[in-house]
Design a protein around this nucleic acid. Structure first.
Length: 600
RNA sequence: CGGGGCGUAGCUCAGCUUGGUAGAGCGCUCGGUUUGGGACCGAGAGGCCGCAGGUUCGAAUCCUGUCGCCCCGACCA
């Protein structure tokens, strides 16, 4: 690209002295204040020249890395017909999140939220042989999602730019290679962008794929919680797993006994009363971790049927509803309501447990019968409730709990479920030590889709043996405008933006300070030289603006290198100002080029 | 969808309690003085006080409704 110089006196920008009142997070506030973007509607932004320049810098890096392994760029429209999305059922599944519209004939259209369907169909149209594969296609295109609540400026918008790629292979091994190529390219892209990231295992269930990882940028404004261990483990909380302890012998465990525990509907009250009235003979106090909490959830399947399940987990844990949603998908999960309880009067709120003296209340029974429990409600166990563990839990009577109830002896679950809250200190499943919790913003996602879309849309090719095989696909996304916001979010100070050099709208910002015509002339020629040397230059040539305003704007706009042409210019000296460090050094004009190169 | 807040000039806000015909700072235009950290003087342009009803001689102000926006939560391939 040809180097350019732009005069601030001509640039279409107006900086705001005060923060816009509707902007909360730093990136939103500063991008608006510095004149990079303007809001058009909730979650919808117009791009001004400065913002566009940054956006294109980011896009160029993405393109470079994708082309480096042979991915090819295409461009789909944002406006698409309903049909392809009907075939995969996403016209319906997307629900309110989809922008739908009708043409003059009443035909249904949508503003695409993502493009799996049409990419699949495009390849189906043109290719039919294994010899054409592997193939990776991508586009950088605006996506539309009618978010219930757009927020934080560019971080969650309703229109946003996304780079989406799709890989096409006819073998699983091929998909693995394509996936790895994208994953490697993403690492290089984020490194070039100067973006801190962690790769976390993501839940792959809902989309029917086999492998999925998210690139998260750690930041307090992030929307995802993830866990990581010092030993290198990282995962989304939804994908975090806890291993069940090895089964313990049932021999020698004391029998369960029902004890009075008046007024103990909560775990906290139960622990208190247990310690007061039923202290353990052999020492340690009862804690919440000794109790078994039984939570009644209502699942609504896609066909609308509602089923209650009880999840039993240690009393020091809560249910993480996000994890629950993933675990029970596609069914919807919510806490059981009054009507649900009314149908099961045998469930005594606050005193629910799996066991009664006669017959299992929930789940199966240790002896394998009776086949159905009293309630018939499925009992799902947290992995910590493993065979041979003993618990204090509800006795299904007001004011009574059963102590020493042993999993695998006195009650049996109908399955395991991993929806307990994850807390700092939990062991990583790979043995790499305790985890900590952190917030992150998803900036990239690599996903092995497998054959779901190819199957639904009939994308098959002939293999070496002349046999039709269904193509296997991957999809890979990077949020371009979100990345821009994340970079802004992580690169600013009280005075304004501080762009990393690879994405800065200009390489250098030249400020002419003072009204002297001679100084202005020197600045003009200096700008010309820098441009000739291949640098993009923003030139603050505004004649009637005081130096303070120019300096303030320079800091707000965030070009990392600033050159002040001022009082020492007639002596052949200018100041080189590093935006990030604030350091200013006097350099001779002759050496400016090398001084800039040294800073860059 | 639940909770909270806010709609007055391009931006940030005052005025509303107690009704009397629209204000400030910044920005913008013109003239002049300034020019190394957000200068100053003078003269201007700019508002359907979100919208619709109502009360009243009179509504930015009181009442009702409505729309929109922001934040928190729910939701989010």
């Amino acid at each position: 690209m040809e180097a350019v110089s732009t005069r601030l006196s001509q640039l279409f920008v107006r900086t705001l002295r005060e923060d816009p009142v509707d902007a909360e997070v730093a990136s939103h506030r500063l991008l608006v204040r510095a004149g990079y973007i303007r809001r058009q509607a909730p979650g919808v932004f117009a791009w001004l020249p400065l913002g566009l320049r940054v956006r294109r810098k980011i896009e160029a890096i993405i393109r470079d890395e994708l082309e480096s392994f042979g991915a090819q760029e295409v461009l789909f429209p944002g406006l698409l017909p309903r049909e392809p999305y009907e075939v995969t059922n996403r016209w319906t599944e997307y629900g309110d999140g989809l922008f739908r519209l009708k043409d003059r004939k009443g035909a249904d259209y949508l503003l695409a939220p993502t493009h799996e369907e049409v990419f699949t169909l495009l390849v189906k149209d043109l290719y039919s042989s294994y010899k054409d594969l592997p193939l990776s296609l991508y586009q950088i295109q605006d996506k539309y999602r009618d978010e219930a609540r757009p927020r934080a400026g560019l971080l969650r918008g309703r229109e946003f730019s996304m780079k989406d790629s799709y890989s096409f292979d006819y073998t699983d091994a091929g998909l693995e290679v394509s996936y790895q190529q994208h994953r490697d390219a993403y690492e290089r892209i984020f490194q070039r962008l100067g973006l801190d990231y962690v790769i976390v295992k993501a839940d792959a269930g809902a989309m029917g794929g086999s492998r999925s990882e998210e690139f998260l940028h750690p930041t307090p404004v992030g929307e995802d919680t993830f866990v990581r261990s010092a030993g290198g483990y990282a995962a989304n909380v939804e994908a975090f797993t806890t291993d069940a302890p090895a089964p313990r012998s049932l021999d020698g465990l004391s029998p369960a006994e029902v004890l009075d525990t008046p007024d103990t509907p909560t775990i906290a009250t139960l622990v208190d009363v247990a310690n007061q009235k039923h202290a353990r003979a052999d020492g340690p106090e009862w804690t919440a971790a000794d109790t078994l909490k039984c939570i009644v959830l209502a699942l609504t399947a896609l066909d609308g049927t509602r089923e209650l399940v009880v999840v039993a987990l240690p009393g020091d844990r809560d249910i993480d509803m996000k994890r629950a949603e993933v675990a029970f998908a596609p069914a919807e999960v919510e806490a059981a309501n009054e009507a649900d309880f009314a149908k099961h009067p045998e469930l005594v709120k606050g005193y629910i447990g799996p066991w009664t003296a006669d017959r299992a209340m929930l789940g199966g029974s240790a002896e394998g019968e009776p086949a159905r429990s009293i309630t018939g409600i499925r009992l799902l166990l947290d992995p910590r409730v493993s065979e041979g563990t003993a618990w204090v839990t509800g006795a299904n009577e007001h004011g009574k709990h059963v102590f020493g109830l042993v999993a695998g002896r006195d009650f049996v679950g109908d399955g395991e479920v991993q929806i307990g809250s994850v807390v700092a200190g939990d062991p990583a499943p790979d043995g790499s030590g305790p985890v900590e919790l952190a917030r992150g913003m998803e900036i990239g996602h690599v996903f092995q889709l497998g054959r779901k879309y190819a199957e639904a849309l009939g994308l098959k090719v002939l293999d070496e043996n002349g046999k039709l095989v269904t193509v296997t696909m991957g999809s890979y996304g990077i949020g371009v405008t979100r990345i821009l916001a994340v970079i802004a979010e992580s690169n600013n100070d009280g005075k304004g933006l501080i762009w990393p050099k690879n994405v800065s709208p200009f390489d250098v910002h030249v400020v002419v300070a003072g009204k002297d015509a001679a100084v202005m002339e020197i600045a003009e020629s200096l700008v010309g030289n820098l441009e000739a040397g291949g640098l993009d230059v923003l030139f603050d040539d505004r004649p009637k603006v005081s130096p303070g305003v120019k300096f303030g704007d320079a800091e707000l706009l965030g070009v990392p290198l600033i050159v002040i042409v001022g009082r020492d210019a007639p002596e052949g000296r200018v100041e080189l100002w590093n935006r990030a460090t604030g350091e200013r050094t006097s350099v001779s004009i002759d050496e400016l080029g090398s001084a800039l190169a040294a800073q860059a």
